[in-house]
Design a protein around this nucleic acid. Structure first.
Length: 559
DNA sequence: AAAAAAG
């Protein structure tokens, strides 16, 4: 950091007391008023500055006061009592225009970041790109740039603008950007560029995902972006087959691995290890806060094991998610050297592309009524419905299957074949309504999901952000309806806050509800009666009239 | 508190 930088840092927020230092101010203005010769001006300013520095400025006065006044003079200003070194003297001879150019450049970069709501921390952060064609300045081949365009990415999203150049410079990053804003491509592009082509050195890039479905999606995206590169990209289920067929040595011919943590651990801890990570240059952890959640340190131990096996000294790590917790930030600060953190928008914010609605449904049974109402009024498929447990997913499926909608259900208790086929059918539009657990909450990119229904109230604000993030992706708009009953009080406040932050009107009483900490929330959960089964009980018809009126739209946001 | 993650 040079003296100028230091000065700027010290001076933030300090005001110049013109009355008190009127004499000094006049002297400065006197100098500034003479435009004939810039260099002369500069010399005189330094003279004035030095004289002030040594006479009037000692004692209480802060150096930053002057900085504000001399802002238009591109001269590194020396701190009181700081010895004037030779190199600093030399700096005075740097052409005025060059310093000015650098400053303007800095301002332009700041403006660009502000405009796209990118905030960064870290040292020497590269300039954001505004077009993919700029990647050629990083020696990215036209082949890759063409692939990016062919995959439908026209112009970089904020996270791509900043994360791609950072990673291309080999920097380690922690990136937090809204759901559906192109994080996957943001890490795949630099990786593909770095690897260059197949090398038969074993895995050089590993991408960790929390679910198999997400791993598969990332894998497919990787294949699309690396077309023509001839990479051996592998998702672990395939590598299992390959290893069984050709033996452990066959892993040498793979370049990129996309998988879930447990499988890696399984393969690494075999004796002898079935795979080697000694050549891994990039380790990407997708949905990083998911893998850090839970009081159990389970995943962190797994990550420790994985990191230990990445023995290459040229290992870079990249952490990505739409939500971020302090635990993750702290871990990254301690474990990633030269870290750059990139945050787009507010941390843990919902996308502003989703119209969000809270629907009071009174009781557990009111939910099924409300859902049938919504479906009967007509919904535009595809629709996602989130429930809290695998059993409830199955129960709700059993209810809806006779309603004449193409409905299916996905959760971790179904076989992998069933899961794959459900996802495929939903993508192809054969399934209109998909009932799912938290399994589908993160990262999954179904094109054109129009509506997300939170049948069960999300267990946390973070979960809410991810669930509703399945719609409103890649610039498209979407809608989310969240059911809540008399029981759902613990998380109402935090979710209402998120809704308001993303531009949605919520009643004030929700925002002023009691704040629960983690322990209290758990206590409340334990106290709460077990949820009734989702089913059409015989008394249903009797309650029908009452139920209809208890379903009231409280508010909605129009966009 | 539930869900997810090995074969």
């Amino acid at each position: 950091m040079d003296a100028y930088e230091l000065f700027r840092k010290l001076s933030t927020g300090v005001k110049f007391d013109k009355k008190r230092f009127q004499v000094d101010a006049e002297r400065f203005q006197l100098v500034n008023r003479q435009p004939e010769n810039e260099l002369n001006d500069k010399k005189r300013v330094i003279e004035v500055f030095n004289s002030i520095n040594h006479s009037t400025l000692c004692g209480k006065r802060k150096h930053n006061d002057i900085e504000k006044e001399t802002d238009n003079i591109n001269e590194p200003i020396l701190l009181e009592g700081m010895p004037v070194s030779k190199s600093q003297n030399k700096r005075c001879k740097v052409p005025f225009t060059e310093e000015k150019r650098l400053k303007l450049e800095k301002e332009k970069i700041n403006q660009l970041r502000n405009q796209h709501r990118i905030s960064v921390t870290g040292n020497r952060i590269p300039k954001p790109i505004t077009e993919f064609s700029e990647l050629s300045t990083y020696d990215v081949s036209s082949k890759l740039i063409n692939n990016i365009i062919n995959c439908g990415y026209e112009c970089p999203t904020p996270i791509q603008m900043q994360a791609i150049p950072a990673m291309l410079q080999g920097r380690q990053i922690l990136a937090c950007a809204p759901t559906g804003s192109g994080k996957t491509a943001a890490f795949l592009v630099p990786i593909i560029h770095h690897l260059g082509g197949p090398k038969r050195k074993g895995f050089r890039a590993v991408i960790l995902s929390p679910t198999r479905e997400l791993a598969k999606q990332t894998y497919r995206e990787c294949l699309r972006l690396s077309e023509g590169y001839d990479f051996r990209v592998h998702i672990i289920s395939k590598i299992n087959q390959a290893l069984n067929k050709y033996g452990p040595k066959s892993s040498q011919k793979f370049d990129i691995l996309v998988t879930t943590p447990k499988r890696i651990i399984y393969l690494l801890t075999q004796d002898p290890p079935a795979i080697s990570f000694s050549n891994v240059e990039w380790l990407i952890v997708d949905e990083v806060d998911k893998l850090f959640e839970d009081g159990t340190r389970c995943f962190r131990n797994q990550l420790e094991t994985i990191l230990k096996s990445c023995t290459n000294e040229n290992l870079h790590k990249g952490m990505f998610s739409a939500t971020n917790t302090s635990v993750v930030s702290k871990w990254c600060r301690h474990n990633l050297k030269g870290l750059i953190t990139i945050t787009v928008g507010h941390r843990n914010a919902a996308t502003n592309l989703v119209e969000q609605e809270l629907l009071f449904v009174s009781t557990e049974r009111g939910k099924l009524m409300a859902l049938r109402n919504i479906i009967q009024k007509g919904v535009l498929p595809p629709v996602l419905i989130f429930v809290q447990s695998k059993e409830r997913a199955q129960e709700l499926f059993n209810e809806l299957i006779y309603d004449g909608v193409n409905v299916d259900v996905i959760h971790a208790d179904r076989t992998q074949m069933q899961r794959d086929s459900v996802v495929r059918c939903f993508r192809e539009g054969k399934i209109w309504v998909l009932i799912c657990t938290e399994l589908m909450a993160r990262g999954i990119d179904f094109k054109g999901v129009n509506l997300v229904i939170n049948y069960d109230f999300p267990p946390s604000a973070i979960s809410y952000v991810h669930r509703i993030g399945r719609t409103g992706r890649a610039g498209h708009r979407g809608k989310a309806i969240t059911f809540f009953t008399e029981q759902d009080t613990t998380n109402l406040r935090s979710i209402a806050t998120i809704m308001r932050e993303s531009g949605c009107n919520v009643p004030d009483y929700m925002l002023s509800m009691k704040k629960y900490n983690k322990m209290e929330r758990r206590k409340q959960e334990r106290k709460a009666p077990v949820r009734a089964k989702i089913s059409t009980v015989p008394t249903f018809k009797r309650d029908r009239k009452k139920m209809r009126y208890s379903t009231v739209v409280l508010f909605s946001k129009k966009i």
